[in-house]
């Protein structure tokens, strides 16, 4: 998905994990996934660019659909769709 497409997505749950280091963002995503409806998009915000690959692998392994990431001012927004 392009940056524009990602930014236009309707978000089911935002996880603000900015300012926390590994494994903070991954754990925050794991904690919050229950609050995202099935079929909804989750956006994980992290200031650690290692989180991009972490969430990519984790979301796929957990059976979700990875959508992409967007670099913002000092942090990244990482998007995936909760499939189940």
């Amino acid at each position: 998905m392009t940056t524009e497409e990602l930014q236009a997505l309707e978000i089911g749950k935002v996880v603000d994990a900015r300012g926390t280091a590994c494994p903070g963002p991954l754990l925050d995503a794991k904690r919050a996934i229950g609050e995202c409806p099935v079929g909804g998009v989750m956006e994980v915000q992290s200031s650690d660019d290692g989180t991009i690959i972490d969430i990519q692998r984790w979301s796929r392994k957990m059976g979700h659909e990875y959508l992409g990431d967007v670099e913002n001012d000092g942090f990244w927004s990482i998007y995936f769709r909760k499939v189940k």
Binding site: P23, L26, L27, A29, K30, W58, K61
Partner: peptide, 11 residues
């Protein structure tokens, strides 16, 4: 503990 928690995130 970081490794252990990473694994826990994967259920």
């Amino acid at each position: 503990f970081i490794v252990a928690l990473g694994a826990a995130a994967y259920d």
